[in-house]
């Protein structure tokens, strides 16, 4: 990640300093800056600036009414030492992310791989079936109908009919059921852009590689997958990993829609909910910013670690 220009400096202009040369290149490419300007200005306002502002505000007690005072790391100390609900939220978020992230990633990869062996017509139908839940908006609310807390919910109705239970289970009000159910629903909506990227990546692997592999002694499809397919589609695997990680930390909306906010006994309370609670409801912006910064650091950290791991595939 360097901001050095990729263009090689022509040898004839070696007498110029780097700054002079850069400035000359910049003037020559005015049009290029003009073209990226609209996007980049908005990008800085709505994506880069918020991160910087959050970091700055996290060291203050800003509450939207009074001038902010510098409180240094008080917000962070309060989060980790005084706020039991934050610790619970952090724990829930990690459980949620550590399950949904890897599982949805592997699920997307396996399904994409298996789909790849189907014929083109069947493949597009099956792709649609798997992809549909992730683009259909609030359709995940159907799980509330399926697991509804009275006998008209399909699951309770069936269980009662079979005589397994006498009274309906209050799935979304019972702390024991909330997390597993939310994870299942999150997984159900998780086959999104990464999944499509895997499908495309698999289609791009040239067939002659497989044929050469078969000649070279690849015995079965698992070896073929490990030694040929995965190394070839490593760029897609990277892209998919980034999306899966980001997604696995962002399922707060699904949880709120299913179990309300706050959930019973905070059983599905995540960092996102905590952030929303302090930022969106109590307007303790300094404290909320500290939460946002922690979330930011965790996500970037997870991405860095996973990227390192993935770069080892096929090496």
């Amino acid at each position: 990640m360097s901001n050095k220009t990729a263009v090689k400096r022509p040898t004839a202009q070696k007498d110029m300093t780097k700054a002079q040369w850069t400035w000359k290149e910049m003037k020559k490419n005015k049009v290029a800056y003009l073209m990226i300007a609209p996007f980049m200005i908005l990008f800085f306002i709505f994506t880069v600036w918020p991160v910087l502002l959050s970091i700055a505000l996290s060291f203050t007690d800003f509450n939207m009414l009074e001038m902010p005072n510098l409180v240094w790391v008080d917000n962070y100390i309060r989060l980790f030492l005084d706020d039991d609900i934050f610790l619970l939220a952090a724990q829930n978020t990690l459980i949620f992310a550590c399950i949904t992230g890897p599982v949805s990633y592997i699920m997307a990869l396996l399904i994409a791989w298996f789909i790849n062996e189907l014929g083109p017509k069947l493949r597009s139908v099956v792709t649609l079936i798997f992809y549909a839940p992730s683009i259909s908006g609030s359709v995940y609310l159907v799980w509330q109908t399926l697991f509804s807390s009275d006998s008209y919910g399909w699951v309770n109705g069936t269980l009662i009919n079979l005589g397994w239970i006498d009274d309906p289970i209050l799935f979304f009000q019972d702390a024991d059921y909330i997390m597993p159910l939310c994870i299942v629903v999150a997984l159900w909506t998780s086959l999104g852009t990464a999944f499509l990227s895997f499908i495309a990546g698999l289609q791009n692997v040239p067939r002659h590689l497989y044929e050469a592999g078969a000649v070279d002694g690849v015995k079965n499809r698992w070896q073929e997958f490990w030694y040929i397919t995965l190394p070839y589609m490593r760029p897609q695997l990277m892209f998919g990993a980034v999306l899966s990680i980001t997604q696995s930390f962002g399922f707060g909306g699904v949880v709120t829609a299913l179990c309300g906010f706050p959930s019973v006994d905070y059983a599905a309370h995540t960092i996102m909910h905590h952030l929303d609670d302090y930022g969106g409801q109590r307007y303790e912006m300094g404290y909320a910013s500290a939460i946002a910064v922690i979330l930011f650091v965790v996500m970037i950290g997870a991405n860095t670690i996973i990227k390192k791991g993935l770069s080892k595939i096929g090496q």
Binding site: T47, V51, S54, L57, T246, G279, A292, M299
Partner: peptide, 10 residues
């Protein structure tokens, strides 16, 4: 690499 919730407050 990070979700939009991070930027929501700012």
């Amino acid at each position: 690499m990070f979700h939009q919730t991070v930027t929501a407050i700012a």
